[in-house]
């Protein structure tokens, strides 16, 4: 099969090669890949921020496709059949630990050691991949399988963060950084009834996209003072601030969050990234700061898929660029240049 395999930390990061098609082992499903997303976390991966990556590793963790085959001992709780459209979660919980039992499967210790396309398991930048069946989530009818790939990362990460922060009808929201996750947050929050939704970024085209996806206000922080502008719109601050930048520092968040408000952080930062918080306003104003990793695959992803199937969230609006596999290095270069809202690679 055709696959994009890791070369090393210098560009181009990947090379297209023929490799053997994997066979599903016990409890695994073989998925024929339709599309994979181009995500900023991959850049961290390529640069070794998550630890060493072996040459030949297949990245790609935002995956949609079709069920191709089942390994032995598959329990198949969703009743999947060959050919069914699915997405693949990069969070692969064991489903039995106390974290999974308490609905926090994104923090399952087993999941930390096996993330398709990120840690331990080959990912979806290929024509096929095998994954433990718990990572395979069925798509609803009417959801475009190619454009569904970002549900498995950008939308999932944004949705879980918004839910963790308590976003609902009437929640005032500031999203700082409208890349893939930030834009997904804007679009989902709009569908969830948040108002107003203020998007902050340094790129006009990203802000234009944010407006298209439901932002009520957009602020280019290189052109106007975001603190003053947000305070004009929300004199008492925002109920929720979502730090979706790759390198969150919480500076703007702490300036504009409301009393008893919540800051939710999804940007992973690098291994040496940190932020500091002024203690007095943090305590006196009762600010909550939440780190939010990914999503709960069996709980959050089906809810997002229903939002998409209902027409409340149009995933096609998020995807700005589509590539063929041979353009995958160009796709990552364009990602690093900040040119994408979200990009996908079509494999099938």
């Amino acid at each position: 099969m055709k696959a994009a395999t890791y070369k090393g930390p210098n560009k181009p990061y990947l090379e297209i090669k023929e490799v053997s098609t994997p066979k599903p082992g016990p409890g695994e499903i073989l998925v024929r890949v339709a599309a994979t997303g181009i995500c900023h976390s991959d850049i961290h991966l390529f640069k070794g921020d998550f630890g060493p990556v072996m040459p030949g590793f297949i990245p790609g963790h935002e995956i949609s496709g079709w069920v191709e085959d089942f390994g032995p001992d598959v329990k198949n709780p969703w009743g999947l059949k060959k050919g069914d459209p699915v997405i693949v979660s990069w969070i692969v919980p064991d489903g039995i630990c106390k974290y999974c039992a308490s609905g926090k499967e994104n923090y399952c210790p087993a999941a930390a050691g096996r993330m398709p396309g990120l840690v331990g398991l080959n990912g979806g930048h290929a024509e096929y991949l095998t994954v433990p069946e718990i990572a395979v989530i069925p798509l609803e009818k009417g959801v475009d399988i190619y454009y569904a790939a970002p549900i498995a990362c950008a939308y999932g990460t944004a949705y879980h963060a918004l839910r963790e922060a308590g976003v609902g009808p009437g929640t005032s929201l500031v999203v700082i950084g409208v890349g893939g996750v930030g834009l997904s947050a804007v679009q989902l929050a709009s569908a969830m009834g948040a108002y107003p939704i203020i998007a902050v970024d340094i790129r006009d085209y990203a802000l234009d996209k944010a407006k298209e996806l439901g932002a009520t206000h957009v602020i280019n922080s290189t052109k106007e003072d975001p603190i003053s502008r947000i305070r004009e719109i929300l004199p008492d601050g925002a109920d929720v601030v979502h730090e979706a930048r790759p390198e969150p520092d919480l500076k703007l968040s702490m300036e504009v969050v409301a009393r008893a408000g919540t800051i939710v952080v999804t940007g992973l930062g690098g291994p040496k990234s940190y932020f500091s918080v002024n203690v007095l306003p943090f305590v006196v104003n009762g600010i909550r700061i939440i780190g939010s990793l990914g999503y709960r695959p069996r709980l959050d992803l089906p809810e997002i898929i229903k939002l998409v199937a209902s027409g409340k969230v149009d995933v096609k609006k998020l995807v700005s660029h589509t590539y063929v596999p041979e353009q995958i290095n160009e796709a990552y270069e364009n990602l690093e240049k900040g040119l994408h809202a979200r990009a996908i690679v079509k494999w099938g």
Binding site: D225, I227, S228, R231, E255, R259, L280, P281
Partner: peptide, 20 residues
């Protein structure tokens, strides 16, 4: 400042608190 009876319309609230 903390109770927002004085509103910080422009400038860093956190800087102001450092100079309380």
């Amino acid at each position: 400042l903390l109770s927002r009876k004085i509103k910080v319309k422009k400038g860093s609230f956190l800087t102001l608190i450092q100079y309380s």
